[in-house]
């Protein structure tokens, strides 16, 4: 029989330093966000205003929707480099099936709004399925598979618009992309809803649990009888559909559909997830982390516009912030693993 003292001995040490180390992944992004907000508030009088908060929210909405899907993928220890490309493709498919002005020289096929939207969703779903098939059935590493899909998506976009620009999307989508509900832009509501749904799925559903387990230890998940391929395939499809939705709203929000329109969103969405503290090795992180990451990026991008700074330097600063986040990410993972194994007798 074990005595009570044994139990106490085996219990983990609970020093303040240990507490911080165990939560470095969550604390560091939040501290970064606080620092940036305080810094920009002092540096520019126009930063800390209610209007500007609205700007930031609107600016991170499209990235946010993409980042939800990416969070699923990265939690599974995979990556999706085709998110921006699939967003672009889906947005252009939507425009392609919508009646354009006579001035737009695109051989498009106008359909009823509902049909156009359904076809767009089908398009991104199908591209996601191809990703899923390549990764799980053929066994192509997701990094390479989605790199190929990035090209394929760009190719489809190029064929559809042929260098032209489409301006019209169905009115329903146009409202969601550009309109407001009272003072709140619809696109912010859409992003918030997507983030909320993503959070609920990850936290409260069986599927969400499997995503964490597959990311935490894929072999162990398999030995536990989890259909790992199905989970990995599903997150690839989820990511593509989130990107598709972001693409449709994005085309409406930006007011046009054209080639290479979403290129920046690839880096932004990956940055948001990783800066937020979700582990690149899978299994650790949450939509909450992604939200913090989105705000870090949003505040940074927006704040740099408010202070007079060389616009070319902006890119460099963003790169450095991303590098710092990556270092913390890897470091936090190592600390947690060490903590978990060192306290084992």
């Amino acid at each position: 029989m074990m005595s009570a003292t044994d139990v106490v001995e085996r219990a983990p040490r609970t020093g303040a330093a240990d507490w911080v180390r165990g939560r470095l992944r969550n604390i560091a992004p939040f501290a970064t966000l606080l620092f940036l907000v305080v810094f920009f508030s002092f540096a520019s009088p126009s930063f800390a205003t209610f209007d500007n908060l609205g700007n930031i929210l609107t600016q991170i909405s499209v990235t946010g929707i993409i980042a939800v899907g990416l969070t699923f993928v990265i939690l599974c220890a995979e990556i999706d480099l085709s998110v921006a490309s699939i967003a672009n493709t889906t947005g252009v498919v939507l425009a392609f099936f919508t009646l354009q002005d006579a001035s737009t020289n695109i051989a498009n096929k106008p359909l009823p709004a509902v049909a156009a939207i359904v076809l767009s969703v089908v398009a991104c779903f199908a591209l996601g399925l191809v990703n899923a098939f390549g990764v799980t059935r053929i066994g192509i590493p997701s990094f390479i598979m989605t790199l190929a899909m990035l090209q394929i998506g760009n190719g489809i976009t190029a064929l559809l618009v042929r260098g032209q620009i489409a301006y019209n999307v169905p009115p329903f989508i146009a409202t969601l992309g550009n309109g407001s509900l009272g003072p709140v832009p619809w696109i912010v509501i859409c992003a918030a809803l997507t983030l909320l749904i993503g959070h609920l799925v990850l936290t409260y559903t069986r599927f969400g649990r499997y995503v964490y387990m597959v990311g935490g230890n894929r072999e162990a998940a398999e030995y536990s009888g989890v259909n790992v391929k199905r989970i990995v395939g599903s997150v690839m499809v989820i990511s593509a559909v989130c990107s598709g939705v972001a693409g449709m709203l994005g085309v409406a929000h930006l007011g046009s559909g054209q080639q290479n329109e979403f290129d920046n969103y690839l880096l932004d969405s990956i940055s948001a997830v990783v800066v937020g503290g979700t582990s690149l090795f899978g299994g650790q992180g949450s939509i909450g982390n992604t939200i913090v990451g989105l705000f870090v990026l949003g505040v940074l991008n927006n704040g740099l516009d408010h202070i007079s700074i060389d616009s070319f330097l902006k890119v460099l600063i963003r790169g450095l912030i991303l590098l710092a986040a990556l270092i913390i990410n890897v470091y936090a993972q190592r600390l947690r693993t060490r903590q978990a194994t060192s306290s084992a007798a």
Binding site: N217, A220, G283, T337
Partner: peptide, 13 residues
């Protein structure tokens, strides 16, 4: 149950 704990368990969970 495989022979190695590592391939069976989720250490951080």
């Amino acid at each position: 149950v495989p022979e190695s704990r590592r391939s069976m368990l989720f250490a951080l969970e």
